[in-house]
Computed example of a mutant assay.
Amino acid sequence: MKAIARPLPFVLVSSGHGTMIVNRNDYRMVDDKRGYGVGHQIFESSYFDPQEIQLALDMLSLRRQVHGDGVLAIDGGANIGVHTVEWAKHMHGWGQVIAVEAQERVFYALAGNIAINNCFNATLHYAALGAEEGSITVPKPDYLKPASFGSLELRQSGKNEFIGQSIDYSPAGGQPVKMITVDGLGLSRLDFLKLDIEGMELEGLAGALKSIAAHRPIMLIETIKTDAVALKRMLDEHGYKQVHVGINILAIHSADPCLAHVNFV
């Protein structure tokens, strides 16, 4: 065999979430000591956002307690699947997860993590979540070089975050990826909707309004790249009580009996 030298960015790690495929370049250093990224957190502490994950698990358990078995949750912007894996393991025997991820190489890691952790109650979509069905050109970062890949914004704007490397938003620098909507999934039940889609949260909500009206899911929505006023107005219009939890808004419908079990002070 002729040896061919090549880089190996994706590696298996024994994390607090189980065996996971993680890109060892998934980090952006702010200075000599501080950095961020899903991979960065896992390599530094073996966990990614454990408090946020626990909050999600608590909400899934609450929906089961109030609405019974058959809980269905959507992980919008699943990245390598830390939330997806933890939710699926937690809901073994009583719930399902649908995970959506738009970066091709990251999606492959997500699929591997679902397989290696035996999450048979998780279904994956290689797609972007938006307001309408169609296609979107997803930029392709260099996964062989450091960057916070989970911070990649699919749409170019004057406020795009620098994730650790320059991103080419030209059509030639990306690839077409299917755009789907939550409503287009035709779900008969929806209990929990997480949207962490890097500034496209309002679009993701716009494509979920029929499902939200029908099923009144609990929602966890990242706010750091979203118009907070517009988000609050949309949630208000659809009857949701809201509380800030870190960089997210936790929203529970005013008519959902789950609300009585959560302190919204």
Rank of each mutant, 00 (worst) to 15 (best):
L220E: 06
A214L: 08
I136D: 01
I212W: 00
M234Y: 03
D183E: 10
Q242I: 11
L12D: 15
H17T: 07
G68I: 11
N121T: 09
P257T: 09
N121P: 06
G112C: 11
L152H: 02
G130L: 08
S15P: 07
R216T: 14
V11R: 12
K210S: 13
Q175K: 11
A213Y: 05
I249A: 09
L60F: 10
L129D: 00
D183Y: 04
V11P: 03
R155L: 14
A172D: 14
G16H: 04
S135Y: 00
G204L: 01
A208E: 01
F264P: 10
Y47S: 03
V262H: 02
K33S: 09
N121V: 06
V30A: 11
G39Y: 02
L55V: 09
S188Y: 04
M219K: 01
G246Y: 02
E101F: 02
V38I: 13
A5M: 15
C258P: 13
A115N: 08
L259S: 12
H238R: 12
E52V: 10
E201N: 07
Y27K: 07
K140M: 14
L129W: 00
L185F: 03
K140T: 15
V182E: 04
L220C: 10
E198F: 00
F120R: 12
I114R: 14
P257L: 14
Q54G: 00
M179Q: 15
G186H: 07
H67G: 07
A228M: 13
F10Q: 11
R233L: 14
Q165G: 05
R189E: 07
L231P: 09
I53R: 00
E104G: 07
G130C: 09
V11E: 10
S157P: 10
P50L: 01
Q242L: 04
I80R: 02
A99Q: 11
H261W: 11
D75N: 02
F120C: 05
L144M: 09
I212S: 09
H90F: 07
A131T: 04
G16K: 05
N25H: 07
L152D: 02
M234R: 11
I74D: 01
V243A: 15
D191A: 09
G207P: 09
H125I: 00
A88Y: 03
N25P: 10
G134N: 04
M20L: 14
G77P: 05
A127T: 01
S188V: 08
E132H: 03
D191F: 04
V100T: 05
R189N: 08
G186D: 06
Q96L: 07
Q96C: 08
V97Y: 03
M234F: 03
N23P: 06
H83Q: 07
C258Y: 12
E44A: 12
H90R: 06
